[in-house]
């Protein structure tokens, strides 16, 4: 049985760990609030943007824009958006798994895959595969639209140079504080969402003919398409950011609870050992007294 002192120092250690994890939980909770706010602020922008994109592309041939060109797929690029920091449970490894599945799927079809890693964790995991073309690390802490823009521009340039025929993006989608799932989207060639709601379709159809454009629709599209890439990339980063904090919050909450359980068990052990010690001492004293009497 462990000595009293050992158990006591172990309890102390676990208590300190619990302090750290519960502090991290609170930090993650407040960061999550910020990240979620950022995400919600961005939502109206994306919605309006997608509306405009689909109404504009409804009456245009997609073939004429290099960024929308659908090519025979030989090479695939996957943009993997993960967090910079660990200690957020299985959040990143779920994304790795989804990405690895996609990679092996394409490779079994004989296609070449290259990766762009956003976030330190993704880079660390995929570095040894030798597929990482570019990595953007240490930006998930506080990023702005222009961070997303530089990533999007790089990916677009690679696509236009013919180095990749199709570009996917994988990120941790924020479903709720409790649930985050890896989510995959096609980034390039750009396929504007065709909204299913009847209202939007008729609106787009009605709008198709009688819109005035300045400059011409094609020139507007030339401006809009790179912007669309930025919006998509920024969106993926926002979602991953919020998911990361939510995942960390849950993980740290679990850790704190596990610590508390451990402290309870250890305290029980400690008390038992103490009790056994006292009993043994009492026995000694009684034994000694008996011996003197005799």
């Amino acid at each position: 049985m462990a000595s009293l002192k050992d158990v006591k120092s172990k309890i102390g250690g676990v208590k300190k760990t619990a302090q750290i994890t519960s502090a991290m939980n609170m930090v993650a909770a407040s960061k999550l609030r910020g990240a979620q706010q950022k995400m919600e602020d961005f939502r109206p922008y994306t919605e309006k943007f997608n509306q405009a994109m689909s109404s504009l592309s409804a009456n245009m041939e997609s073939g004429q824009f290099p960024l929308m060109e659908v090519r025979d797929v030989q090479t695939v690029e996957i943009v993997i958006v993960t967090s910079d920091r660990g200690l957020c449970g299985s959040f990143n490894s779920h994304i790795f798994k989804a990405a690895a599945k996609l990679i092996s799927q394409y490779e079994s079809e004989g296609k070449k895959v290259s990766l762009v890693c956003v976030g330190k964790k993704g880079n660390a995991f995929f570095k040894k595969t030798g597929k990482v073309r570019k990595s953007h690390t240490d930006i998930m802490g506080s990023f702005q639209m222009f961070n997303a823009r530089s990533i999007a521009q790089d990916v677009a340039a690679n696509f236009l140079a013919g180095e990749a025929d199709k570009v996917h993006v994988i990120y941790g989608k924020f479903m709720s504080v409790a649930v985050q799932r890896p989510h995959m989207e096609v980034l390039l060639p750009v396929q504007p969402e065709v909204s299913e709601s009847e209202d939007a379709v008729t609106k787009a159809g009605a709008a198709a003919g009688d819109y005035l454009y300045e400059p011409s629709p094609t020139e507007i599209m030339d401006v809009l398409l790179p912007l669309y890439m930025n919006v998509m990339t920024y969106h993926a980063m926002l979602e991953t950011g919020a998911s990361e904090h939510a995942a960390r919050m849950t993980a740290m909450d679990n850790a704190t609870r596990a610590c508390k359980d451990m402290i309870k068990d250890l305290t029980l052990l400690y008390n038992k050992a103490r009790q056994a010690g006292i009993t043994a001492e009492l026995m000694d004293i009684v034994g000694g007294a008996e011996a003197l009497k005799g």
Partner: peptide
Amino acid sequence: PGFAGEFGVLANHAPFLST
């Protein structure tokens, strides 16, 4: 400030899209 210079929009303007 539109692409081709400044433009003004009043109520019931025709559908219009500009950078």
